[in-house]
Amino acid sequence: MRLRAAVCLLGRFPALAGTDLDVHEREVLLLSGPNGAGKTTLLRLLAGLVRLRSGKAEVLGVDLARDRRSHRRRLGFMGHDTLCYDDLTVRENLRFATRSAGATAATADDVLTRVGLEEQADVAHQRLSAGQCRRLSLAVALSRSPDLLLLDEPHAGLDPAGRSMLDSVISEAPSAGTTVIVASHETERVRSLADREVRIVGGRAERAVLERPSVDSAPSAEGGP
């Protein structure tokens, strides 16, 4: 995955203002940075949800300037919203996501168990707690066995058990062939799982910690030593 001088506009505001970034296969990358830095926009660009205004962006071998759609079935996206329907149950929402990606209903049931929502399988989305919504959002992202997993503040709202489950998902993903990009303010927690950290400031990738940070040399919560 490669970005070169990537610019994205939200209205007239350049949410990404010329970002360069390389992400390697099976890597776990942490995106850190202050609110409004452009982390969410960067993830949405990689998912093909926002248009690339200038520069180059190649994700999973697809040039996003030409084609924002064809890589989507190979990625999982966990954003701030669940991307689900209030009146459908957890299982129905998940089955819609898996079937639309060409996967089977059995996959949906497996993922439900993995994120610990099997007891809420027949509960309507509108009756879920905030933490359960986060689990469902993760389940939707995982349901298509993605090659690229994009997680935006994934720990927010999760209870300790949920956070541990999420940590396992992130740490096990590379061995399953999945590249993971996590935008998070919980930098200390994610650093322990990440191979690399890139700090985003003012819509640009400001600094990359190129080697997996050890506990002793881990950058501060503000983004780096």
Partner: peptide, 17 residues
Amino acid sequence: AVEAEHGAIDGLRLSGL
């Protein structure tokens, strides 16, 4: 309106349909 709630329209776009 149903698609606008909880970002479902993004889910529809990401679905690959």
